[in-house]
């Protein structure tokens, strides 16, 4: 029993940081779903691209050279965010906008196609094998828990949690108080009416995709630095899990996506800690199935009545 507390704390930090990443990606899913009602299947790939762009920038700047670390990291983050937002914009423009207003199945299949396309595009450009990411944020806080037990909280994982909290607060304020945020909320409520009232809905939709891509890019860069490994195929599973998180929290609701991400991250980490670890993906998907069966609107979602 003595080792319970250290192990618990360690798992808590791991779970929270994993959940924070899921939450960052899940917001992209939930916002797009809230506004145009489609599952952007390619969003996981956008996250993977964000991770690659940040790694390329880090390498280009010469992470091991004399430039101070915060500047290098900041520059990589900036480049990654800008380029990935561009990808979000381009994907929506190319693959989804021409399909708007058609049957619901059509954009979903287009999104699956886009996901396959992006995955193989990166695999062709950067190679299909794993690349290792230099450990720039090394070390951690060593906490003595008494009786000789200690817990190491890696700085990279703490960075994930801090950055995510800051971004979530900023996003909430932005959606609540800015002009564009208000337009987003209006479009989510009633697209046709917003259009009539003079909101450029195409711009709002493009913006939503870019915002989702920005958050995913931050998540991609942080996970790369923390895990230390990237491959073109990390996006699919991460995207699926993030979607699970969005559904868990109630799709269409931004606080729901944050909550869902944290819950899923914790559930997965604790399940992996107390069960054979290869079953952690099974746990995540089972959670998805169970939530949808018994709680289809999610934790914070509103139920929608179908009108004739």
């Amino acid at each position: 029993m003595a080792d319970f507390l250290p192990q618990f704390t360690q798992q808590l930090i791991n779970g929270l940081s994993l959940g924070a990443i899921y939450a960052l990606i899940a917001i992209g899913y939930t916002m797009v779903y809230g506004i145009i009602g489609m599952i952007n299947f390619a969003h996981g790939e956008i996250y993977m691209i964000g991770a690659y762009v940040s790694l390329v920038t880090l390498t280009a700047l010469g992470a091991q050279s004399g430039v101070p670390l915060p500047i290098v990291l900041g520059a990589a983050l900036l480049v990654s965010v800008v380029v990935t937002a561009g990808y979000g914009f381009a994907v929506e423009r190319f693959a989804y906008r021409p399909l708007r207003g058609g049957p619901r199945l059509v954009p979903l299949i287009s999104a699956i196609g886009m996901s396959i396309l992006l995955q193989n595009y990166v695999a062709l450009g950067q190679g299909a094998r794993d690349v290792s990411v230099p450990q720039l944020i090394a070390g951690g806080i060593d906490i003595q828990m008494g009786e000789g037990y200690s817990v190491v909280l890696p700085y990279s994982r703490l960075a994930i949690i801090c950055v995510t909290v800051v971004l979530m607060v900023a996003l909430t304020l932005f959606i609540q108080y800015s002009r564009m945020g208000r337009a987003c909320r209006a479009c989510a409520q009633d697209m046709g009416m917003s259009n009539l009232l003079g909101i450029d809905t195409n711009r709002v939709i493009s913006f939503t995709f870019m915002l989702g891509a920005i958050l995913a890019a931050v998540g991609g860069m942080l996970i790369g630095l923390s895990v230390g490994r990237l491959s073109p195929f990390i996006g699919f599973i991460a995207g699926l899990k993030a979607f699970t998180a969005a559904v868990l929290g109630g799709i269409g609701s931004i606080p729901g996506a944050m909550l869902g991400g944290i819950v899923l991250g914790l559930a997965e980490t604790f399940a992996a800690g107390y069960m054979p670890s290869q079953y952690k993906d099974v746990v995540a998907f089972s959670l998805l199935v169970l939530v949808l069966l018994f709680w289809p609107t999610g934790l914070l979602g509103k139920s929608r009545l179908e009108k004739v």
Binding site: I39, L108, L240, P276, Q278, D281, F285, V289, L292
Partner: peptide, 23 residues
């Protein structure tokens, strides 16, 4: 479940079956 949710749950089941066979 409605359309999109059904798609995701079936996807989840497909993955669960594959992971179980794998594990």
């Amino acid at each position: 479940l409605r359309g999109d949710y059904l798609a995701i749950v079936t996807l989840g089941f497909g993955e669960i079956i594959r992971l179980m066979l794998n594990n």
